[in-house]
């Protein structure tokens, strides 16, 4: 009986601490993230090395594998910075490079992540709903922030929805994420033309403070069209031009 009493006492103590933490200590995530960001980055890049390489990698020893991970990280950083700053849209002065430290998904390399954890936060002037881009492609937006880290949802996330248009035919509609890497271009008028292979871009939703999705950021390419004459609208499936699971660095679009 005494053992059972101790069990309940420990449980009640832990429950009180958990409740206290839940309601009174909500601003300490930054310290935890700072401590664990190093191992997270190494682990994430190790997984990306094994995704890209073939079976020969398994025979390399651990020291060489870690060295390879570090070298590829540096190469990826340089390549993405070089590529990004050669593009003209959006303006380079507003771009903040950010390293991805976390991208949990069910099966890494097979199922698409729903979001990222970035090594950039309030101290780097990142803000809620800041667009995340890679070259001239829209990747997602910031939904949660700490001092040096932020949580991003991708364009394919179920909670993502914004206005878009096609480049060829000028059809306008709403771009919605449906989960697991899939995007649809919905609420398009039947009188508008959608064709397979057309590129879907953002329409632009910038507010007076300069925040929001700028126009003409690439979302993806139309892969199929669903048009029913008895419906009010037509829709299309959109495939992103970027493989979200392969990225190591992205860019945050800061306001002017």
């Amino acid at each position: 009986m005494a053992k059972r009493q101790i069990l309940f006492l420990v449980f009640i103590f832990c429950a009180i601490v958990a409740f206290f933490t839940l309601f009174f200590i909500s601003d300490s995530r930054g310290y935890i993230q700072t401590v664990f960001s190093g191992p997270q980055t190494v682990l994430l890049h190790l997984f990306q090395i094994f995704k890209i390489s073939d079976g020969k990698t398994q025979q390399e020893n651990k020291a060489l594998t870690l060295e390879l991970a570090k070298m590829n990280l540096i190469k990826a950083d340089n390549a993405s910075l070089h590529d990004q700053f050669l593009t003209s849209n959006p303006p380079n002065k507003n771009l903040l490079p950010a390293q991805i430290v976390g991208m949990p998904s069910f099966l890494p390399g097979i199922s698409m992540p729903e979001g990222y954890i970035l090594h950039a936060g309030k101290k780097e002037k990142v803000f809620i709903n800041a667009p995340i881009i890679y070259k001239d492609n829209l990747i997602g937006k910031v939904v949660n922030l700490e001092d040096h880290f932020s949580k991003v949802i991708l364009v394919s996330n179920k909670n993502m929805s914004f206005s878009g248009k096609t480049t060829d035919t000028g059809a306008t509609g709403i771009i919605k994420g449906t989960g697991n890497g899939t995007i649809i271009f919905d609420n398009v008028l039947l009188s508008d033309t959608l064709k397979v292979g057309d590129i879907v871009v953002t329409s632009g939703e910038v507010d007076i403070n300069g925040k929001g999705f700028p126009p003409d950021l690439v979302v993806g390419k139309i892969t199929s069209v669903e048009k029913n004459p008895s419906s009010l609208f037509q829709r299309a499936s959109v495939a992103s031009l970027i493989n979200f699971s392969k990225l190591t660095n992205v860019f945050v679009l800061l306001s002017d």
């Binding site: 832990c14 429950a15 601490v17 933490t21 309601f23 200590i25 909500s26 995530r29 949660n144 949580k151």
Partner: peptide, 26 residues
């Protein structure tokens, strides 16, 4: 002591996944 371990690990996981601290511990 498993409860204490669960409490601490839950707080760490909440910190790294941007949940409210204490949710996963509970």
């Amino acid at each position: 002591w498993i409860f204490i371990v669960g409490l601490i690990l839950g707080i760490i996981i909440d910190g790294l996944t941007f949940r409210h601290l204490g949710e996963t511990s509970l």
